[in-house]
Design a protein around this nucleic acid. Sequence first.
DNA 1: CTGAAAGCGCTAACAG
DNA 2: CTGTTAGCGCTTTCAG
Lengths: 347, 347
Amino acid sequence: MVTSAEIALRAGVSRGTVDRVLHNRGKVSPEKEALVRQIASELGYVPNLAGRGLAVRKKSLRIGMLYPKDDRMTPFFKKVVAGAQEYAESLSAYNAAAVFLPRNGAVPAKEEEIRSIIEEAGLDAIAFDGETAMNCRQLLKELKEKGVPFVLYNSDLQIDGQLAYIGCDYEKAGRIACGLAAMGRKDKICVGIASHDFGNVVSSSARIRGFEDEMRRFPDMSVSFRQFMSADLNQDEFFEHVRSRVQEHPEVNVMYVVNPGDYSICRLIHDIRRDIAIITNDLIDEHQRQMIQSGEIAATICQQPEVQGAKSLEILFRHLAFGEKPQSDWFRTRLSIIIAQNADEEI
Amino acid sequence: MVTSAEIALRAGVSRGTVDRVLHNRGKVSPEKEALVRQIASELGYVPNLAGRGLAVRKKSLRIGMLYPKDDRMTPFFKKVVAGAQEYAESLSAYNAAAVFLPRNGAVPAKEEEIRSIIEEAGLDAIAFDGETAMNCRQLLKELKEKGVPFVLYNSDLQIDGQLAYIGCDYEKAGRIACGLAAMGRKDKICVGIASHDFGNVVSSSARIRGFEDEMRRFPDMSVSFRQFMSADLNQDEFFEHVRSRVQEHPEVNVMYVVNPGDYSICRLIHDIRRDIAIITNDLIDEHQRQMIQSGEIAATICQQPEVQGAKSLEILFRHLAFGEKPQSDWFRTRLSIIIAQNADEEI
DNA sequence: CTGAAAGCGCTAACAG
DNA sequence: CTGTTAGCGCTTTCAG
C-alpha cells in the first residue's frame, strides 16, 4: 500500500503539502502541486480508510435525516429509519452522529416548518425523503448555494443539486409485477388494479405505468379496471368500491395492489374469490408475510427500505468525511421478488 | 464513544492491561481482570475499528482461498473468485493479503496435494470450497488442532472445526423453484427434472429434495421423469436422453434444470416445445441472461456466488485481525428470483 | 506558501 | 504481573 508519506518523500515535500494538494486545500506552488499529483497517480495512491477514520473524529459531523411520521406512512418509513438508525451506530466511531427529524406526515410539508427544523438542528448535511423535498424547492436551492450537501431518498425529484437519489426504480417494479402476473398463465389474463391513493402519487403512478407498458409483451393480458382512492371517499367506501369492482368483473384473475401495507384489501379480495392471484409491493408487516406464506398473496416486490435509510446517511457521511462522490447520482435499491417459499428472507 | 483509555482511567490501570484483559492475552491479576471486564461491559465498550485497522498492519496476515479450476466448473467459481478478489483489494489497507490457490477441478481433490498447496503458501487461515474439503477430512482435523482457522464455502460438510459455512440453502432453492413452477398454473403441473450430474452431487440432490418436498403444497403437481447423467453417457448422449424424455412426455409443462450453466439444455428443451416453462439455478452467463430476458427461460434462482467468495475471506480476516466470531456458523447467501423483468440485476 | 508536530484509538514490544 | 512507549496513516493546527 502506498502512503502519503511515501509520496512526500519521493516529491521531496512534507506530508502536509501532499495533503493540501490532494484535498485542494490551501495554496501550494504550481510546480509542487503538479509533481505531487503525478507521483500520486503513478503510484496509484488510495488513502487508507483506517487512518482517515481516526483523523476525521475532529470534525464532529452531524447529519440530519428527515422523514414523514404519521399512522398511515409509519410502517414503511419505520423500516427506512430503522436501517438509518443501525447505520448511525457505526458513526459514533467517527465522532459523527445522525439526527432524526420527523415531520408531521399527515399533512403536506410546509417549507418554513422544514427550514426551522433543520436550522435548529445545526447540520452538516441532510437527507430528504422525496415527498418532503417536493415542497421545499426554495430551501433545496439555498442549501445548494450554501454548499450544504443533501440527498433525496425513496422518491426522486427533477432538480439538480442533490448528491444522489437513493431508491428503487418504480417503473421497473411495475414491470416485474407484470411479469409475475403473466407467469405460468396460458389463458387470458385480466388484471384489476387497486391503489390506495388519488392516482397522483409519484411512486404508484410510475409502478402502474411500468406494469401497463410491460403488458405489451403479453398480448393476452388486459386491464379490466383501475380503482383509485378519491377525495369524496373514506377508507370503508374505498374498500366497498374495490369489492364491487371485483364482483362486477368475474373475468379478473390477477389483482395488482399497488400500495404498500394494504393487506386488508388483499384479504378482502381473497375472501371474494380465492382464485385471484394477488400481487403487491413492499413487505413491511408480519400479517402480510403470513399471507404470502399461506398463498393468499401470490407475490410481493420489495425495495429495501432499510438500505434506503442506511445508504442515505452513508453517502452523506462519506462525502463529508472523506470527500467521496457517489459512484452514480442514483443508488438503485434492489427490487426483490418474494413468494411463499422465500418470504422468510427480508424483514 | 468509549475508549480503552477511558476504561483504563476508571479502573486505575494502564491501557496495556485493559488490552490484555480484553484479548485474553498474557497474565493479569484476577481482581484487575474482573474490574476491567465489569467497567467495559458497564460502559458498553466497543473497540474502534479504525484504530484497530491501523494497528493490525503489523500482523501481515495471509489468507488462502482454495477453489476448483477446470472448464466445467469455471463459470460458477470464476464469480466466486471475482468476489473474493474484489474484497481482497481492501485487505491491502490492513497490510493483509489473500492468496488464491486453484486446484485441478477436473479430478477429485487429493488430500496430499491440498496439504502441500497450503503448506507452501504459509497461511494464517484458509477458505475451502465444500467439494475440496470433502476429501481432506484428516487435514481439516489437523488444522483444527493446530488452531489454524478455516471456513467452508458453497457446499457444507458435516464436520466441526470450521469457523463458518458460507453458502445458500440448497433445499430452499429447490422449494423456491417449485413455487415458481406452480405460479399461475391452474391445470395439472407435470414436471421434468434434468440434472447434469450423476445424481450424487450434494447441491443438486438437496435442490431436488427441496423441490419434491415442496410439491406437497400442490396436489396437482407431479414429476413425470428425472434424467441424470451417468457414467456410460457422454455429453451428447445425455442431451439426446433429455430430448427423448421430453418428447415421450407431452404432458410435461415445466422443466426444472438443476445445474448451473446448462443453458444449452434449456435451448434444446425450448426448441422441442416452446410452451414448457424452464426453471434453472444460477445466472452466470450472458447467453443465459438473454434467454431469461427473451422468455426462453422462465425463471432462475441465484445464490450470490460473489458474496460467497468475499464473505469467506471477510469472516477469516475479521477473525484473525479483530478476534471476531461470526454471528452464526452459517452465513446464508440470499436466494433471489430472476425473471425477464429483473434479469439486469445481478451479474 | 511550507514544514513540523500533535493526536485520533488500538496493539504489541519492551522494560521493569 | 504491569506500565510505558512507539507507531500504524491521516488531517489539521501552528509556526515560520
